[in-house]
Design a protein around this nucleic acid. Structure first.
Lengths: 211, 211
DNA sequence: ACCTGAACACCGTTCAAGT
DNA sequence: ACCTGAACACCGTTCAAGT
């Protein structure tokens, strides 16, 4: 046929990464998946790091963006962030290996959507940006925590459907915390900015370990 | 002298990791820091992974645990988690490289403290556990986000104290989201469990990317 | 233009020696 | 018991050839 193209490489990379995790993914593995020599992929992606960025962008593009008339702002955020959580969970380790200081196009788009939802809810621009980062931080942190927990609890793995139960439980835990956060945001919206006061008060937090 | 011991190795490892990050830390670098051959450290730590676990445990041991009479439950949580945030931020990449499914002793201890604070606040055991995981997830997620942002914004780095400003701003953003979360928890405590309802309702979340 | 195979500069770690 | 130096099995990637 007419040879590889970037999409082939990205798809194969994503497939392998979903199976074994982004950390274990190897350029040689990728080549084997494509049935091609080790260096062939480099004709279409400049580096492994860049390949991972492509995959991550693709995965974030799969996040469900709720339409405007899809309920209150908090329901819309819940839909979006739940989808983000399950999408991000698809490829283990991927978000540990992304090039630092690099914002993916899909990430930017999602940030815009979330900011829009928060603004429509009545937040001022600055608090909206903070809230958006707080939520995103929560999502990423939960993905990380879940990975660690899942790895830890493989003892009762006798029947095959334990993994399924775990996924549902993961989602439940994630949703619990997300709703806590949304409740806090709702309160912030009504009560008027209790969270942002006195941020500069405690300038020197204890950063010296006791050892 | 009487040679190396585990503490020497851990301290040198931590020092190097704080400078260059846990990802860039190399066993050969560590040896150079210790003024010793590449393999010498292996007499005292079984692997690089285990060394990182030691460092991480040490760092978490430095988290400030507020004493019982130190204000309301939410103030105590704020103190503890702020300290956790700044401690965890000390060594870049460390929490990306920790052995999966491994709970550190210091982590266990902190979990216990947080759980105790939540129980004393009036949470039932199960919601307390969920809330604790939600908070921890947030903390880890913020550390990750901050690393990415700091790396991204190195353009206006002309005067030397830009890093300081960033650190303060990081803390401010972190605190904002944490207080949102605490406000949500307070509401949960009063209003009675709106967050945990209907977690099994939406069994199949959209996990198929549009591509 | 696209692919290959050998090679390079790393890495964590094993192993046989040295003291 | 502790340390060393060479070596091994990987990695991502460069480079000179091949078609």
């Amino acid at each position: 046929m007419t040879g590889l193209n970037e999409l082939d490489v990205e798809r194969a990379g994503r497939a392998v990464a979903e199976r074994v995790g982004a950390r274990a993914l190897t350029m040689r593995m990728l080549a084997a998946e494509l049935g091609v020599s080790t260096m062939a992929a480099y004709r279409h992606v400049v580096s492994k790091t860049e390949l991972l960025a492509l995959i991550a962008d693709d995965i974030l593009s799969g996040v469900t963006v709720p339409s405007g008339g899809c309920g209150e702002w908090d329901t819309r955020l819940e839909i979006l962030e739940s989808s983000a959580f399950s999408q991000i969970s698809l490829v283990p380790d991927l978000w540990d290996l992304l090039p630092p200081g690099r914002i993916l196009p899909a990430e930017l788009r999602l940030n815009g959507v979330v900011a829009g939802i928060l603004l429509s809810a009545g937040f001022e621009p600055l608090p909206a940006a903070w809230a958006q980062e707080a939520i995103f931080g929560y999502v990423f942190g939960q993905v990380r925590l879940r990975m660690r927990v899942v790895s830890a609890g493989l003892t009762d793995d006798r029947d095959g459907h334990r993994g399924r139960t775990d996924r549902a439980e993961m989602q439940a835990h994630f949703l619990y915390g997300l709703r806590i956060m949304l409740a806090g945001l709702r309160k912030e919206l009504e009560g008027g900015g209790a969270a942002s006061c006195e941020v500069h008060q405690r300038s020197a937090l204890p950063s010296h370990p006791t050892r």
